[in-house]
Design a protein around this nucleic acid. Structure first.
Lengths: 345, 345
DNA sequence: TTGAAAGCGCTAACAA
DNA sequence: TTGTTAGCGCTTTCAA
């Protein structure tokens, strides 16, 4: 682990190029209003000295950091058990990189961490924040709001407070759920059950709402609560089978849950999709393609969600891509979902 | 998206507490050599004003950033198809947080990104780097080495260059593979096949070496090359079945591959574990527990790897936990693995 | 034990 | 078009 050699400063470059610091600064920041000959000379000096601007010094005066915090508030391990998180991150990273912004990752584990994150955000280290916090009772969103940092949420935040100016990017969970249930109905199924996700998350609530939109007069016993996990799916499926042995279809809140349900159905001797059709949500490939039979599911474009979050934030900061289409303030985005047909329904 | 209110400076705190800036600075940084009465006064002023130090100004003079870059160089999407990455990140984040360091995430996509990352690292934005780069031909490690940033690698880096002072944290891939194959042999299996991982990654090479350690005179036709994916596992398993119909066990380079193999075996009418015993690697729960039958596999403690990487780096920077045990320079770490028995072997 | 003062490396008025 | 100069907010000698 070598020590870093002392890096050349603007001063050094200026000396070498035979110009003032101001001129070097101008060239380094785009070179507008500087004669071509000088631009050339400065560029050469920069090159020769291997000059890289000191970001701390720059931030001190510009009050910009070109850095965005990504806050992942996930007390549970669920986020880490599926590629969801990584995919969003990738989308975010791509967009930030394209606009020369750094990504500062803040993972929080429980309440104690909240104050730490709040302090950090309030500390003006970053220009904005992208926040994943999908739990209804989570204090984090408000905390961040108070820190006065421009923020975009991943998924509709489930707070009851002031919603004005709250920006988020979400999938059309409700619409996707409707599509899934309609597809099952189109298959001629009439006893369509739903296994919910963790109902303290807006995505789970929205998917349940979508189910209800279609199954207006659904037998309430056809709904079983779970938590997005395979184990939860198994438990819920057993419950359902006990309560409603005549069910002929299941819409599960996500693929993991559907995988659990599939296993229980097989154990119970029900054939899928002949006896019971099953649909999941997410289109999490390693799961959806590996189940037996492969899972029909509702796909959401996770990476695109990430990219959009970053774009929205950057735009709000007056950087990033110029507004496409009509101008005006950026607003929340809800991305469409698509039904992916495989063998299970 | 509200604008940030102008934050109070040291100056303001000093004025309010009726002391000099220097004194406030001392208090904020631990308060050594300042009378208790003054410490008290300053703390109060800090509190009342909601003062948070400006990190840019501080870095400018201290040349410290309390920030560590995590570089994930993964041209393929594989990293994102399993929770491996997220778990390491979690371990890293925990350790960094415990020592008040920020995590700057740099995701690279292909070669073009390398120069960007190199520039960033050389730019002195961070105090050190944790790098995941497991491909044999990857230029990134050398690039980083040249940038002169203290670095710890995740997984043994597969370069042929100067290895002096290269620090890494890895699992005992070779030992774990040996355990797996020995376990199969202990089950009385004699025709034990191996499906490799992507052989441009050291982990795959090491696991293959472990297999060979035990199967000294193995029929070379018992080895089929794959790439850590389920599809690769299927392909390799078909190959193997064609070449060596008499095989009675398979050690797959990871769980995903094993899952693919399992499916092909079932299609081929081979019972697992009765006809063919199968072992994977990773203990990736959502996969290993969901396969049919559940997968016997070699577990590595991913999160701990991440934590250790961070600890090693921090220690090299003379921060972090005081050296446990004997002193001296930190050195690379290879973590043990454990065999987890389930139904497949 | 405290304060005064000199920068850290850069940008951004303002003059020239 | 270029240079001069005054800070940005902080830490850190050096004196007192």
């Amino acid at each position: 682990m070598t020590d870093t050699a002392p890096r050349p400063t603007l001063e050094a470059v200026a000396a070498r190029a035979g110009v003032s610091r101001a001129t070097v600064s101008r060239v380094v920041n785009g070179g507008d209003g500087v004669r071509d000959i000088l631009v050339e000379r400065v560029r050469k000096a920069v090159e020769e000295l291997g000059y890289v601007p000191n970001q701390a010094a720059r931030s001190l005066v510009t009050r910009r950091h070109d850095a965005i915090a990504v806050v992942v508030a996930e007390p549970e391990t669920r986020v880490f058990a599926d590629p969801f998180f990584a995919l969003q991150l990738r989308g975010i990273s791509k967009e930030l990189t394209a606009h020369d912004n750094q990504l500062v990752l803040l993972l929080t584990e429980g309440r104690d961490d909240h104050t730490r994150v709040g302090r950090y955000l309030a500390g003006g280290h970053v220009d904005g924040a992208l926040v994943f916090s999908l739990h209804l009772d989570d204090p984090l969103p408000q905390l961040i709001q108070r820190a006065g940092v421009p923020t975009v949420f991943g998924g509709r935040p489930g707070w009851s407070g002031d919603r004005r100016g709250v920006l988020y990017v979400d999938s059309d969970n409700r619409g996707g759920a409707r599509d899934a249930v309609r597809h099952l109905a189109g298959l001629g199924r009439t006893r369509i059950a739903h296994i919910t996700g963790a109902l303290d998350q807006t995505s789970a609530v929205d998917r349940l709402d979508g189910y209800r939109d279609v199954m207006v007069d659904a037998d309430p016993r056809l709904i079983a609560e779970a938590d997005f996990t395979p184990a939860g799916g198994e438990r819920a499926m057993r419950e359902l089978l006990g309560r409603c042995p005549d069910l002929d279809a299941v819409f599960a809140a996500n693929d993991l849950t559907a995988a659990g349900a599939l296993r229980v159905l097989r154990e119970a001797g029900r054939r899928v999709p002949d006896d019971v059709a099953v649909i999941g949500f997410d289109d999490m490939l390693p799961v959806a393609e590996q189940t037996d039979p492969p899972l029909t599911t509702v796909r959401q474009d996770i990476e695109e969600m990430g990219r959009l979050m970053a774009r929205l934030l950057l735009r709000g900061l007056d950087r990033g891509a110029p507004q496409e289409g009509v101008g005006g303030a950026p607003s929340s985005v809800v991305l469409p979902t698509t039904l992916v047909r495989r063998a299970s329904a």
